[in-house]
Design a protein around this nucleic acid. Structure first.
Lengths: 205, 205
DNA sequence: TTCTCTATCTGAACATTGCATAGATAAGAG
DNA sequence: CTCTTATCTATGCAATGTTCAGATAGAGAA
């Protein structure tokens, strides 16, 4: 993260190196601490180099956002399925909020419409993929057909279910728990002790 | 918004002029289009002038955020109360999301923890005040005592109710409806035609 | 009025940022 | 070995937030 680290003139795989460097910076300093020049320096490269691989800062961050959505998808897909719809939906919601709480900078990034290009087909595709499992859990709970986000299938119940988790995630990364809880690590406290009962209240058996 | 507009050397009330100028800029160009220099120029004043009235850009935006929260409070308080808890809660939620959709830039501002100072006591107070009516509606629907946000009274049901609207608001200003709807003005379509059924699904009678 | 004090504002710095461009470098094909 | 092309450097430019010495004028005291 500090010094340059390179022997050859050509980097080899600067593209992914820049994405990883950006991820590290955002993890440490948040989105607001990210600059293109920092990423270039972290990859051991001159300030102008990134332009040859990405369409400006927005292009780099969009590529990173795609990686983050894939990460989110993997985490949600890895969650256990109990067969009990209410519990599965709660599990997905809890996983979603947990992901946001554990990766606040990166979660903020994928919500920053001004920083990434949400017209990018790959980004749209990946963001839909990331929520497929969640959407299916919601459909199962509410007794609907399995939705296909790509075909813009839209159901009120589903929107409600997604919005609740999305709102909770935002509340967490916006620091609302710190305004309501007096514990040392409000976000963790909120997720571990209060969020389950919130979700239980939201989607009871 | 364009040129300087001043005859006297001293402005008279630069502080509020800067806040109003900032509001105008953000309404037009969004938070990402805001710069301190633009605000100064819009108020017809030199780039260094704002520093004499606010603690940097963050101070100015924090002051504006307080104004926005008061605006939100007024709108939510102005909504009719039917006496039917479910309907009142839906009314509040709809009002909340509508405010976000009508003032996307300003709503984004009050969620940008990196831009405003959420340790400012006035901001905290005002943000709590803005949601009092909403919280009471949620309490009535779920059969709880009237909550006092200032005393950090926290109930799972309430958090769920707030999160849903907050999440929907974020989804709207993040442009998710545009990904799901094919109408000319997706945000309006979403709010006017789909949101009511979403809320009906969320909090039925 | 006149003088003084103080709040207010100016104007010119400075460091940092994203970005564009011209040129250097080296990897790979023939 | 030579040429082509992708890759990277170096430099410069405009814009931004912030600071600071100095200019300005309003307000109160004499």
């Amino acid at each position: 993260m500090t010094g340059p680290e390179r022997d050859k003139y050509h980097h080899g795989d600067l593209k992914t190196a820049l994405i990883e460097a950006s991820e590290g910076i955002i993890r440490e300093d948040g989105v607001e601490g990210f600059t293109l020049r920092k990423a270039a320096k972290a990859a051991g490269v001159s300030p102008g180099a990134p332009s040859h691989h990405f369409n400006g800062t927005r292009g780099l961050l969009t590529a990173l956002a795609i990686k983050v959505f894939k990460h989110l998808e993997a985490e949600l897909n890895a969650l256990p399925s109990s067969g009990i719809p209410a519990q599965d939906l709660r599990t997905q919601a809890l996983g979603y909020v947990t992901f946001a709480a554990r990766n606040p900078g990166l979660f903020r990034l994928i919500c920053r419409v001004d920083l990434i290009d949400f017209k990018d087909p790959d980004l749209i595709e990946t963001s839909f993929d990331a929520l497929t499992r969640y959407a299916h859990a919601a459909a199962a709970y509410f007794g609907h057909d399995a939705p296909d986000l790509h075909k813009r299938v839209f159901r009120p119940h589903m929107a409600s279910a997604m919005a609740t988790a999305h709102g909770l995630a935002h509340m967490v990364i916006e620091g609302r728990p710190a305004l309501l809880l007096d514990t040392p690590d409000p976000a963790s406290t909120f997720i571990e002790t209060m969020l389950p009962s919130v979700l239980l209240a939201t989607w009871p058996d």
